[in-house]
Design a protein around this nucleic acid. Structure first.
Length: 450
DNA sequence: TTTTGAGTTGTTCGA
DNA sequence: GTCGAACAACTCAAA
């Protein structure tokens, strides 16, 4: 049983299949340097927590190997005399390519790579228009997706007979990196506790999701994205919890976005790092040392725009950022700093514990106007107005930008506005939003031929 | 094949 | 202070 992004025992079809088809099963996780050497501290921390919890729940039977799975999996099979490797299908470009190579190597040795299940309620590539072609717009996709019939949950596996559990020691077991922020334990049980707390909190939780999910200063979202990314929870398990109320429909729709982007990337694997709309390749970006320094300021949360800096610091400190704030900081990178969305996407993938290549790249492409159903070019987020609208108390900014903690609410989103300069330790804005907005509009207009 | 309505998330300006 | 219109043009999906 090759665990990748499905670190749970419940409702895990691949695990059930492995245990049903084979008398003895070896649970394995491969730490792939292609992925994990590019991960930041908090992302790694979540991964290690999830792995350790999975290992615990299996009586410490989980084995680890470090290296490229294309090499590691075949030699592991040699080592243990393994007939078949069972795993959940990975639809993302890197994983799909990796799995094809692994399957080839295994088959050459008379072994099999067996797929069962995937991290989606509906597998990418399944939902199609009547003419068989994929959807490129969310709303019609989601209507078809709703009627597609989600995959069914599977029973918990029989008590496993883990091959050699008592005797085989773990090689290269990941340890939790040191981090100075206290994160709750990231386990399958913990994820369900978190979900139930959110679900049962009434109007301040799931039942108020439609209203409160945009406010970064309150706990109005489920924060299940990280558990979904690592497969501590499967989306169909959450879908089964929802009714037809407005709030639940909005929540369901967010899961549909996850599935939509998985589908888009499946059909267009090149769009991980390339514009879906290639006409946008002509957009002019800033270059040179000033651009690089501005990018660094953005990464580190010292742009001088409080809502942007709060978000970027939340990301570094916790491995997560509120979705509303993701849009604001993304818009700022692309439209105010005129930098390629790929720079931001790479930074997000390094640090977001919930970073999923499909949602990440296409979320960024949405903001940049290069993706599916591109936003009108004139939609440029104003970081001050967005802050005042979505963090009206300023509490979110105060939490992550302590230099501004003493500022009055009326000033918190534009600390330079009332004269006297910005508070000690904070920075003046690195660009003038009004100027850069015009600049962005001009550059987009140049591409669209206006 | 043609037509028609619609498309996650915004801002600004002027009445 | 509120409110509606303007901000482009295009592509998609379905009738």
């Amino acid at each position: 049983m090759w665990f990748r992004r499905d670190l749970r025992l419940n409702d895990n079809p691949a695990l059930v299949r492995a245990l049903a088809d084979y008398d003895e099963v070896v649970p394995l996780f491969v730490v792939d340097p292609n992925l994990f050497d590019r991960s930041g501290l908090s992302r790694l921390t979540f991964m290690c927590d999830a792995l350790n919890a999975l290992d615990d729940s299996m009586g410490r039977a989980l084995l680890y190997r470090y290296g490229d799975p294309v090499e590691v999996i075949p030699s592991f099979c040699d080592e243990f005399g393994i007939d078949a490797v069972v795993t959940a299908r990975d639809f993302a470009p890197y994983g799909a390519r990796r799995d094809r190579a692994v399957a080839e190597r295994l088959e050459a040795a008379g072994r099999r790579l067996v797929f069962e299940g995937s991290p989606y309620a509906v597998d990418p590539g399944t939902v199609r228009k009547d003419d068989g072609t994929p959807y490129a717009v969310f709303t019609p996709f989601s209507k078809r997706w709703l009627s597609a019939g989600w995959s069914s949950p599977v029973e918990a596996p029989r008590t496993p007979n883990w091959l050699g559990a008592p005797t085989i020691t773990c090689a290269g077991r990941p340890t939790r990196p040191d981090i100075d922020v206290v994160l709750p334990p990231f386990t399958e049980t913990g994820a369900w506790n978190q979900w139930e707390e959110f679900r049962d909190r009434g109007i301040e939780g799931l039942d108020g999701y439609d209203d409160r999910r945009n406010d970064p200063s309150v706990a109005g979202t489920s924060r299940m994205s990280t558990a979904l990314r690592w497969g501590l929870v499967h989306p169909r398990q959450l879908l089964l919890e929802l009714d037809d109320s407005k709030a639940h429909q909005v929540f369901r729709s967010e899961i549909a976005w996850r599935e939509f982007y998985g589908d888009v990337l499946f059909h267009r694997p090149d769009t991980t790092w390339q514009n879906l709309n290639r006409k946008m390749d002509a957009i002019v970006h800033d270059e040179g040392p000033v651009a690089v320094e501005r990018f660094r300021a953005w990464c580190e949360g010292r742009t001088g725009y409080p809502i942007v800096d709060a978000g970027m610091r939340e990301l570094l400190a916790t491995g997560w950022m509120h979705n509303r704030v993701r849009m604001i900081v993304a818009s700022f990178l692309v439209k105010d700093l005129h930098l390629p969305w790929q720079w931001g996407a790479r930074h997000f993938m390094r640090h977001l514990a919930d970073g999923d290549v499909a949602s990440n790249s296409h979320g960024w492409q949405w903001t940049a106007g290069t993706g599916t159903d591109a936003a009108p070019y004139f939609r440029v987020f104003n970081p001050v107005a967005q802050g005042e609208r979505w963090d009206p108390t300023g509490d979110y900014v105060r939490r992550f930008v302590p230099e501004l903690a003493d500022l009055a609410t009326s000033q918190i989103h534009a600390p330079w506005s009332k004269g006297g300069g910005v508070p000690l330790g904070y920075v003046p804005p690195i660009v003038d939003h009004a100027v850069e907005r015009e600049e962005a509009l001009a550059r987009y207009k140049a591409v669209t031929g206006g």
